[in-house]
Computed example of a mutant assay.
Amino acid sequence: MGGSVLDWRVYGCAPSLDTFWDEPRNLGRGAAGDADIAAVQARLGIELPAWLRSLYARYDGGAVRMARARSLHSDDWIDADWLVPRARLLPLAEWFSLAELRRREDYRDDAFAALAADDSRLIAIALGEDNGTLCLDYSAPGAPRIVLTDQRQRLRDYPGHIEFLADLVEIQYWNPALQARHDPHATLRCDPQPPSLDTFWSGPGYWAQGGATPADEPALAAAEARLGLRLPALLRALYLRQDGGSTEFAWVPLRRQPSWHLYDWESVVPGEAVFALAGLQTLADWAAAFQGSDALYGFVRNYAGCERLLILATHNIEWLLCLDYRERGPQEEPEVVAFEFFGELVELYRARDFHRFFADLRRGEIV
């Protein structure tokens, strides 16, 4: 299939002020007005440089598309550093000086002495986990420097926005659909035949012990009782052939009469493997195992009914294939939906039932 699920790739670099924001993820977010700029300048005793005024005239903080940079200690993109923590700039009203942080958290007076002689001149504009903080440094006269710090040392230091933007890249795990959006000329060589019960499975999957084995009716009944829902009849029949595993049928069309351009297709079986019965869990169950992570906990907080989204296949949390019982109930035929998650749960594909999904599936490779 050409590309490992563990393969990080660069999908953009060196944004301009016009391409800095992640537009789709900032829908509904407003611009910073003159009053907002005047308020933050008065509160922090600073003057916003022209480049930040330009950015905030579009959005008052929000998601950025390119947020990382090549690691200072590794040539592998998987080790890329975050230059914009959490890939988001704070709204102006949430900017703060490290002096305010020190007072609020009751740090000792010299806590940030290694960063600046006067920590009131270090203004945080993006904040991540593990004290990763992007700051404007107003210590010297003139335009502020841009500093990334872990609040103990300066990790990166830029004289201005041109040098800062030049280091920024967008990287993600390789994904066929993502690749398609960046390569409009790519095509898919596709087997026109959908799968059957005999052809769907192609191997046992990496988790299997002792090869591919079928499930039985007691195992199906136990899984349904544990999950509190009924699996589609066709999926049950697949499990009676093999209890999860690998498949070459991962592609679905995104329109009724698709071309062979890759942008008309979506790869919806992450890792080309379906969970065994014992591995099935709802999205709520999945999120509950990661209560310490804001992003994953957000599923429970932000997506009502996630206890009725049953995950059939996933790669980490970025791509999910689910049975969706939210509309019809846990004992009825579910819809099938594929999601992408990079800060928000975005629907990529939906089928009215498992039969429709199964009929849509194709084997294919990018050419």
Rank of each mutant, 00 (worst) to 15 (best):
A140S: 11
A140F: 02
A140Y: 00
A140G: 07
P141M: 00
G142P: 00
G142F: 02
A143V: 00
A143G: 04
A143M: 02
P144M: 12
P144N: 12
R145L: 02
R145K: 07
R145F: 01
I146S: 01
I146R: 00
I146H: 02
I146G: 00
I146V: 08
V147M: 09
V147H: 11
L148K: 13
T149K: 08
T149V: 12
T149N: 08
T149M: 08
D150Q: 14
Q151D: 03
Q151C: 14
Q151H: 05
Q151A: 15
Q151W: 00
R152C: 12
R152P: 00
R152D: 08
R154E: 06
R154P: 01
R154Q: 10
R154N: 05
L155K: 12
L155T: 07
L155F: 03
L155V: 09
R156S: 08
R156T: 05
D157V: 02
D157R: 06
Y158E: 02
Y158I: 01
G160R: 01
I162R: 07
I162T: 14
E163W: 06
E163Q: 09
E163Y: 10
F164V: 01
F164I: 03
L165Y: 15
L165E: 02
L165F: 15
L165A: 06
A166S: 09
A166V: 12
D167L: 08
D167P: 01
D167I: 11
L168T: 10
L168H: 13
L168G: 03
V169L: 10
V169A: 05
V169S: 05
V169R: 09
E170H: 15
E170C: 04
I171G: 10
Q172L: 12
Q172M: 13
Q172G: 03
Y173A: 05
Y173D: 02
Y173E: 01
N175P: 00
P176Y: 00
P176W: 02
P176S: 05
P176F: 03
A177E: 04
L178D: 04
Q179P: 00
Q179D: 13
Q179K: 00
A180C: 07
R181K: 05
H182Y: 13
H182P: 02
H182G: 05
D183H: 10
P184I: 04
H185Q: 09
H185S: 13
H185E: 14
H185K: 08
A186P: 11
A186C: 09
T187R: 15
T187F: 10
L188E: 06
R189N: 13
R189M: 11
C190Y: 14
C190I: 15
D191I: 08
P192T: 15
P192S: 15
Q193A: 15
Q193C: 10
P194K: 13
P194M: 07
P194W: 00
P195S: 13
P195G: 07
S196C: 09
L197Y: 14
D198E: 11
T199A: 15
T199W: 08
T199Q: 13
F200D: 01
F200E: 02
F200R: 10
W201H: 13
W201D: 07
W201C: 04
W201F: 07
W201Q: 05
G203L: 01
G203I: 04
G203K: 00
G203C: 07
P204T: 12
G205R: 05
G205A: 11
G205H: 12
W207S: 09
A208I: 11
A208R: 10
Q209A: 11
Q209G: 14
Q209I: 14
Q209E: 14
